[in-house]
Amino acid sequence: MPLYEHVFLARQDLAQAQVDALAETATKIVEDQGGKVVRTETWGLRNLAYRISKNRKAHYVALDFDAPAPVVAELERQTQINEDVIRYMTIRVDAHEQGPSAMMRRGERDRDRGDRGDRGDRGDRRGPRGDRGRDENEG
């Protein structure tokens, strides 16, 4: 069966329990039609690049599943009807990503970097007051 990734954005005023219920509904649609959901990830409440239907933020949810094409059509039809979903996208992929998705790894990467401090490769040698190359004794 073909492999798919389905991501949808839910309204910002929904509780996390309601978002989880939307994900379970999508999972049920896929499984009732003969597909199999491999992974479900909730990316949380995130800022949108632009306002969509008066929403500045949205709850992001991603599903990885393998199912025949009619399942995708039914999932998208049901998603369109739902008023709590403001955007969605389903794409066909060659293989599912192993481990956590890039959105989930992003938080781990930020924690590992910590405070990087000064890069040390600046050629202008600014002092603590922002002056360029002056000696402390110069006026």
Score class of each variant (00 low, 15 high):
residue 1 M to C: 14
residue 3 L to Y: 15
residue 3 L to H: 15
residue 3 L to C: 13
residue 3 L to K: 15
residue 4 Y to T: 01
residue 6 H to E: 01
residue 7 V to I: 15
residue 7 V to R: 04
residue 8 F to S: 04
residue 9 L to Y: 08
residue 9 L to C: 10
residue 11 R to T: 07
residue 11 R to M: 04
residue 13 D to F: 01
residue 15 A to I: 03
residue 19 V to S: 10
residue 19 V to T: 09
residue 20 D to I: 08
residue 20 D to C: 03
residue 21 A to R: 14
residue 22 L to Y: 09
residue 27 T to I: 00
residue 27 T to Q: 14
residue 28 K to I: 01
residue 29 I to V: 15
residue 29 I to F: 09
residue 33 Q to C: 12
residue 33 Q to S: 15
residue 35 G to K: 02
residue 35 G to Q: 01
residue 40 T to A: 08
residue 42 T to Q: 10
residue 42 T to A: 08
residue 45 L to G: 01
residue 46 R to A: 00
residue 47 N to Q: 14
residue 49 A to H: 00
residue 49 A to R: 04
residue 50 Y to D: 04
residue 50 Y to A: 04
residue 51 R to S: 12
residue 52 I to R: 07
residue 54 K to S: 05
residue 55 N to R: 07
residue 56 R to V: 02
residue 57 K to C: 06
residue 58 A to I: 03
residue 59 H to A: 03
residue 59 H to W: 14
residue 61 V to M: 04
residue 62 A to M: 15
residue 62 A to K: 13
residue 63 L to V: 13
residue 64 D to A: 13
residue 65 F to G: 02
residue 67 A to S: 10
residue 69 A to T: 13
residue 70 P to I: 03
residue 71 V to G: 14
residue 73 A to P: 10
residue 74 E to P: 13
residue 76 E to C: 05
residue 76 E to Q: 05
residue 77 R to F: 02
residue 78 Q to G: 06
residue 82 N to I: 05
residue 83 E to D: 15
residue 83 E to F: 02
residue 84 D to W: 12
residue 84 D to P: 05
residue 85 V to L: 01
residue 86 I to A: 08
residue 88 Y to R: 05
residue 89 M to R: 02
residue 89 M to Y: 03
residue 91 I to G: 11
residue 92 R to F: 02
residue 92 R to D: 00
residue 93 V to H: 04
residue 94 D to M: 06
residue 95 A to H: 15
residue 98 Q to L: 11
residue 100 P to S: 00
residue 105 R to N: 11
residue 105 R to G: 06
residue 110 D to V: 12
residue 111 R to K: 15
residue 112 D to K: 15
residue 114 G to K: 11
residue 117 G to A: 01
residue 118 D to A: 14
residue 118 D to V: 11
residue 121 D to W: 11
residue 121 D to G: 05
residue 123 G to M: 04
residue 128 P to Q: 06
residue 129 R to Q: 06
residue 130 G to Y: 05
residue 131 D to R: 14
residue 131 D to S: 09
residue 132 R to V: 08
residue 132 R to C: 05
residue 135 D to L: 10
residue 136 E to N: 12
residue 136 E to Y: 13
residue 136 E to C: 05
residue 138 E to A: 12
